[in-house]
Nucleic acid binder design. Structure first.
Length: 281
DNA sequence: CTCCTGTCCTGCCGGC
DNA sequence: TGCCGGCAGGACAGGA
């Protein structure tokens, strides 16, 4: 589920609840997530103050005053629920981790498919952590420009769709926002990555940043289960130009007519791709 | 190295 | 109505 905009939305919802708070209780109901939740996690973090919530790619980093850093990934179906102090905590299936702060707010990590993970490291080991080490640039950082994107795509003999899904190229894009970015840039998902240089790289860079910024502003996209931590729905899904719209006409286009059948749905490296063959080359 | 496929897990939806 | 196959927003591990 969650790509960069959804993860950023979760981070923003979580920050006011956790920052500068001491974790009073941490309950791990299921440890067998994508990676086992460290057995000592609760013991290490209980009674420690949270100093900051950050995001790197699709990871949420929870920093603690003693140098610990918790690395949270929501996988495909992970969700964060917040129960403000005084509200009844309703339990649901797949509530794997529950924590409560010294303000009596509760934070619940729910993940039916258990592709998510919660790991623990320390500030000085963070940069070298195996999950973070190979990640490409943050797409919304100033350091990420068209030139850097082009250099990351140079020489790559894989479709641009696959290259952008690869977190080592740019970190944080997933299936939806890759499709949407390629549409906006007018680039076919089947185009060889190495041919996205010069003007095409400029357009793609701009499209990626626009799509991500707009999606964050909309609180992310809600397909099945993404909600903001306060329960509000994200609404960027209403702005999808191509994702999930096979057979429809794409915006301002005559791709759906007697002679063409609208937005195409193909499968690339095992994932659905949606695009307009008329606008994307 | 790079690239591609299989795999983990549960829930839901459409078709028969 | 009920069952079953296929598919889902991710990304690692391992093979070619």
């Amino acid at each position: 589920m969650p790509e960069l905009p959804e993860v950023e939305t979760v981070r923003r919802g979580l920050a006011p609840v956790l920052e500068n708070r001491i974790l009073k209780t941490i309950t791990v109901r299921r440890r067998d997530l994508r990676f086992p939740v460290p057995a000592q996690l609760a013991k290490r973090l209980t009674g420690v103050r949270v100093t900051a919530l950050e995001r790197r790619a699709k990871y949420i980093l929870i920093r603690f005053s003693d140098g610990h850093v918790a690395i949270l990934h929501l996988g495909m179906s992970g969700r964060i629920k917040i129960f403000p102090q005084g509200h009844e905590i309703t339990q649901e299936p797949h509530d794997h981790i529950v924590m409560t702060t010294d303000h009596n707010d509760s934070v619940v990590f729910n993940d039916p498919r258990r592709f998510g993970s919660l790991l623990l490291t320390s500030d000085n080991a963070l940069a070298d952590h195996k999950l973070l080490k190979g990640l490409g640039p943050e797409p919304l950082d100033a350091a990420f420009d068209a030139k850097l994107l082009a250099s990351r795509l140079k020489g790559r003999h894989t479709p641009i769709k696959a290259a952008l899904l690869d977190q080592r190229t740019v970190a944080g894009l997933g299936n939806i926002y890759v499709c949407e970015s390629l549409f906006r840039a007018g680039i076919s998902p089947r185009r060889q990555a190495r041919t996205v240089q010069g003007g095409r790289a400029v357009k793609l860079h701009q499209a990626i940043q626009e799509v991500l910024r707009e999606a964050i502003a909309a609180g992310g996209s809600t397909l099945r289960d993404h909600r903001q931590p306060d329960g509000e729905l994200g609404y960027f899904q209403h702005h999808f130009a191509v994702y999930g719209r096979a057979g429809e006409a794409c915006p301002d286009c005559h791709c759906h007519s007697e002679k063409s059948s609208g937005i195409k749905h193909i499968v690339q490296s095992g994932r659905s791709t949606f695009y307009c063959a008329r606008k994307q080359r």
